[in-house]
């Protein structure tokens, strides 16, 4: 169920686009929907970030994963337990660029003996890393459609990405890696029992969606070739706010485009927002210096605590008897009366 529904949903979405264009709704799929989804994406993204940022960080709660700053002669681990900005910067960079915490799982491989679970967690790290980097490169490569000329860095990426020079047009390695890693990430959720337990339909949906986008993109490039020039005209038109849809691009392109639109519209309202969230995670992006520098809680509540005076009032007699110093002496017998 959790798997079938999202799969069917993705297939239906693809079908909608294909049929929609077939019956001449090119304007809808080529112009209106892309605009709407970009607005949804940007608006949603900003709204979500704002929504998070609006909740304050009342306490400084980094998870320390190494020796903190302490006595001078004790070697400290700035990356795992940062004491200042640069430490945090380093820690966050490792986290964002190389998935440091996920990598931690793999250390366990040093334990002797065959261990399936460990290697799979290493695979998780690797697949995750490959997946995200490939996606980034592919997105950047698409930049060529948005500008009249082709920027240098895109050409560079393309040449590196296509260095294998097999097939015509050149096979991009990232295309291949993306498909492989997404497939792995899907299979991983299906193969292991406890992954099946924890996975929700919302975990499968984006995976299937991305897979479908990748496959439709690849098929356009290698199999069911579409008119790239016409596409560039369309995209340039969209970018420069000229609202007409050129015809004759081919259904597969609209499937690709529509699924991308679905993905970016869905993005801000789903777990995909981890892309933005990772930068805000208070257990990672704060320095472990809370005893050195006071952290301010904007809603620090007034709390009535039991003061020493109240305490002494209750126990004064017992304290005096036990020779514990008190602020006030016991009232003398006379005063009592």
């Amino acid at each position: 169920m959790k798997v079938i529904y999202p799969l069917v949903a993705v297939l239906l979405l693809a079908l909608v686009a294909y049929l929609g264009v077939a019956i001449g709704l090119e304007y809808l799929f080529g112009v209106i929907i892309p605009y709407v989804s970009v607005i949804l994406f940007l608006g949603g993204f900003i709204w979500k970030i704002y929504d998070w940022v609006k909740s304050p960080v009342p306490f400084r709660i980094p998870t320390t994963c190494g020796q903190a700053k302490s006595l001078e002669w004790i070697k400290r681990d700035e990356l795992e337990s940062p004491s200042g900005f640069w430490g945090v910067f380093g820690r966050m960079s490792l986290e964002v660029l190389f998935f440091r915490s996920l990598f931690r799982n793999t250390k366990a491989e040093l334990v002797p003996g065959p261990s399936l679970a460990y290697s799979s967690s290493k695979w998780l790290w690797m697949a995750g890393l490959i997946f995200h980097w490939s996606l980034l490169v592919i997105v950047l490569r698409h930049y060529r459609f948005f500008l009249a000329g082709v920027p240098g860095f895109v050409e560079f990426l393309e040449s590196v990405d296509g260095f294998l020079q097999i097939t015509l047009p050149t096979l991009y390695i990232t295309d291949l890696l993306l498909v492989i890693s997404v497939t792995f990430l899907v299979l991983r959720r299906l193969a292991s029992a406890q992954m099946r337990i924890i996975s929700l339909s919302t975990d499968y949906f984006p995976l299937f969606l991305i897979l479908a986008i990748a496959l439709s993109g690849i098929s356009m490039r290698y199999l069911d070739k579409v008119d790239v020039v016409a596409i560039k005209v369309l995209v340039q038109g969209l970018v420069s706010f000229q609202f007409d849809a050129p015809g004759g691009i081919g259904g597969m392109f609209y499937v690709h485009l529509f699924l991308v639109c679905v993905l970016i519209s869905y993005f801000p309202f789903s777990k995909l927002m981890h892309m933005g969230g990772i930068f805000l995670s208070p257990t990672r992006n704060l320095a472990n210096n809370s005893r050195e520098k006071r952290h301010i809680n904007p809603w620090n509540p007034e709390v009535q605590y039991r003061t020493y005076a109240e305490y002494e009032d209750e126990f004064r007699e017992k304290m005096v008897k036990a020779d514990i110093p008190t602020e006030f002496s016991l009232p003398s017998e006379k005063e009592k009366i």
Binding site: V111, G113, S115, L116, Y118, S192, Q194
Partner: peptide
């Protein structure tokens, strides 16, 4: 309580 879980697949002595 599930059919299979990490309890069955994780083979490390300490984990």
């Amino acid at each position: 309580k599930q059919k299979q879980s990490l309890i069955m697949t994780q083979k490390d002595q300490f984990q």
